[in-house]
Nucleic acid binder design. Structure first.
Lengths: 203, 203
DNA sequence: GTCTATACCTGGATAGAC
DNA sequence: GTCTATCCAGGTATAGAC
């Protein structure tokens, strides 16, 4: 069959997400695929190679991006400051909820995020991805965006604090991976937060 | 020397926090202590036993508790509802910042939290501790508290949402374990958030 | 590309002398 | 209580037939 490389990546990710990189052996992976270890080594050079391929895969993977919702792309500069200032709050709402649903509802994305949470401490590359995708990267962008947007309102506010107050609840809810709360209930809480944030801010 | 058991726990925690439970071998621990594996097994029955002892140790460890700041203790009931309603916002501020500083500045506490973040997915007990100490447990308590407190204000609000908006930024900042931002800068951002939250809420 | 078989190593854990 | 020596299971990875 042709898609074996693909299958290996999917099965490996699901195992890594559950037991961590060190907790999964090449035997575990090959057994779940009903092939032998020897066969697996025809597709990848080793266990680390599989892990690396998963990270690369996700870096290239399609996910909701600010630009898809008409929000400014790239870091804040003097050239695009006006675009940042005139960004549409509804667009930000839509983007935030789309990203939230992507990272909580898409199976591959959710497993991947869980893997990052575990591996960020042992692996530089995982740490970087975690930071860019879910922590400093987002906070920096939202800080610039909300800071500039609020410059036009009656009560200008500090971007970094606004970004934290807007994003942290979503970040925390994304961490409820299959825990106490799930599915629609999670999304509804996220949505109530986003609405409440904008109601308060734009009042 | 007498405190060997103690030393083993500290060294093990620092290694576990860095490399994860599976990533640390008994040899690693004994080497760092300059004793042999054989000697180590006189103090603990095995690697798992060391890990369990660390969790127990922290469960018993002193940490800031709501009651230390005059806030209600125990779950909300009809009997203590009045106490919840009349809780002092300043006390909640002080408690929140004390807990934040404890979990970010105390070496043992910070390593332990990092360990929980990694092991919550492989270990029931870690998952439970994480949930009670940092996620559902806190959110539940704060939800009840803020919900009841706000019942006396001019604009009653939903406790669960208030709790999320108050606590999630602190939770997220606690995750910046030695990452991009550190030390005083972290605490100052936390403090600005706490102040901003109450300013907005009690206005 | 998949199999069987195997080399090689590291990890957890124990035995027994001191 | 600490040492040396050792066992054994399980891990990664490779070789070579089919």
């Amino acid at each position: 069959m042709g898609g074996m490389r693909e299958k290996i990546l999917q099965v490996s990710l699901s195992l890594f997400a559950k037991d961590g990189y060190e907790g999964v052996s090449v035997s575990d992976i090959s057994e779940k695929l009903n092939i032998t270890k020897g066969a697996l080594y025809r597709h990848f050079q080793g266990k680390r190679d599989i892990y690396d391929a998963i990270l690369t895969r996700v870096e290239e993977h399609v996910r909701p991006m600010p630009a898809d919702f008409g929000l400014p792309r790239g870091p804040l500069t003097d050239a695009n400051r006006e675009e940042y200032r005139r960004a549409d709050p509804s667009a930000l709402k839509l983007y935030a909820m789309a990203a939230f649903r992507h990272w909580t509802e898409n199976e591959f994305a959710r497993s991947f995020r869980q893997l990052l949470v575990m591996e960020q401490f042992h692996d530089e590359r995982a740490a970087g991805l975690m930071s860019v995708e879910f922590v400093s990267g987002i906070l920096g962008y939202l800080g610039d965006l909300l800071g500039e947007m609020s410059a036009l309102t009656s009560v200008p506010a500090q971007g970094d604090l606004l970004a934290l107050e807007f994003y942290a609840p979503l970040h925390m809810l994304m961490g409820f991976l299959g825990a106490t709360i799930h599915g629609e209930k999670l999304a509804s809480l996220a949505s109530r937060h986003v609405d409440a944030f904008f109601d308060r801010w734009l009042r």
